Computed example of a mutant assay.
Amino acid sequence: MTVQLAASGKLFLAGEYAVLDPGRPALVVGIDWKMHAVAEPGAPGLQILHRPSGLLWDGGQAPAELRFAARAALLAMAFCGKRGGVRISFEDDLSHDGRKLGLGGSAAASVLAVRAVCALADRPAGEDEILALAAGAHWAEQGGSGSGADVAAAALGGILEVRSRIVWQSAEEVMALPGERVAASRPLDVRRLAIPPELRLLLVDTGAPANTRSLVREVRAFARGAPARWQARAGEISAAEGKLRDALESCDAQSALDAVRRGAAAMAALGEDARVPIATPELAKACALASAAGAAGKPSGAGGGYCAVVVAFGDETRDRAEAALRPHFPVFRVAPA
């Protein structure tokens, strides 16, 4: 049996950093730019192939390109009671011309690895169980860090409001638990939003990589060292998320654009307070060009490089923003999956 699988890339629309506080929400979108994998019976044990690089892992320490998939597959095998005979081939990795864009490749790989194992096992899993296993593996592989919102976007697609309910204390705790307990843990609270029919999204590649783990670590250090200032900045980011959620649900285009701009400003202010380069000059330029064209832009995810997401309503505004941005940056049209 051969199974074809796909998982969505992600963009953050609002709530970055603040979502790391349990209970604070983020708005994410699983987009139609997808990662693909093939699952099939294989030799005894577990084999994972990364076709873009030709890397093959079949035990021991996994290479960087496959470490999230390896951990997720092992956790899924524990849940399914499958001892081996699994081969997973990743056909692509959400990169463009060999460069990462910050679209949640590790989250998508975790989701695909869990789905692959469960598809080949005699014990099928529900979507909630797949999401919990992928989120647990992803959180553990990040060293006990992350909100899981990117995993939800990869698994479910569409526009989602996600709150972290993670109660694990360490990566070791997650991996020591029986697979059934991880699958039943429900670490994420997810609510799906209707997609406004006029919503248009652009992905703007600033050409600069970002070290997301380092950015998050520095912001967490700021939060510990200046808790009152952190709460103020996180509150501003969360307020922008709430306004964007309400505007999208009511199809209020102008309020949605205002909320995106407010979220971008709140992220920049957090970066200034924490002395972390969240809003780089390239990201700021992309957002300014989008705003001047009648759209709105913000860093997607942790910032510091990678991509801006541009929100527009209607083809005319989307086209105008794209025309303003394209002389300066590679621009891609994307849509909720």
Results as ranks from 00 to 15, higher is better:
Arg163Tyr: 00
Gly207Gln: 05
Ala107Trp: 02
Asp150Gly: 07
Ile278Met: 02
Gln254Thr: 15
Leu283Val: 01
Ile88Thr: 11
Cys287Asp: 12
Gln4Trp: 14
Gly157Lys: 03
Leu193Ala: 05
Arg165Asn: 05
Leu160Val: 02
Pro124Ala: 04
Gly148Ser: 06
Ser95Arg: 15
Arg163Ser: 00
Leu13Phe: 07
Gly314Asp: 12
Ala208Glu: 13
Thr317His: 06
Ala125Asn: 07
Ala72Gln: 10
Glu322Met: 13
Met77Ile: 11
Val111Trp: 05
Thr317Leu: 12
Gly235Val: 00
Ala290Lys: 05
Val331Phe: 09
Ala293Ile: 00
Ala284Lys: 14
Ala239Thr: 11
Ser250Leu: 04
Asp246Leu: 13
Ala14His: 05
Val219Trp: 02
Leu244Ala: 01
Arg87Ile: 01
Phe12Val: 06
Ala64Ile: 10
Met77Lys: 08
Asp189Trp: 11
Val162Cys: 02
Ala308Pro: 08
Glu249Asn: 04
Ser214Lys: 13
Ala259Tyr: 02
Arg87Thr: 12
Glu127His: 00
Arg165Leu: 07
Ala135Pro: 09
Gly305Leu: 04
Leu270Tyr: 06
Phe68Leu: 07
Arg191Lys: 13
Cys118Leu: 12
Gly136Lys: 10
Cys251Tyr: 02
Glu198Trp: 08
Gln61Trp: 03
Leu257Val: 04
Gly158Gln: 05
Pro22Thr: 06
Ala43Gly: 11
Val309Gln: 02
Arg229Val: 06
Leu55Cys: 15
Ala335Asp: 12
Ala279Asn: 15
Met175Gln: 14
Ala149Val: 01
Ala228Pro: 00
Ala171Gln: 12
Gly235Tyr: 01
Leu103Phe: 05
Pro25Met: 01
Gly84Trp: 02
Ile31Lys: 06
Thr280Cys: 08
Gly60Trp: 10
Gln169Gly: 15
His36Ile: 08
Val190Lys: 07
Leu257Cys: 04
Leu46Cys: 08
His96Gln: 13
Gln169Trp: 05
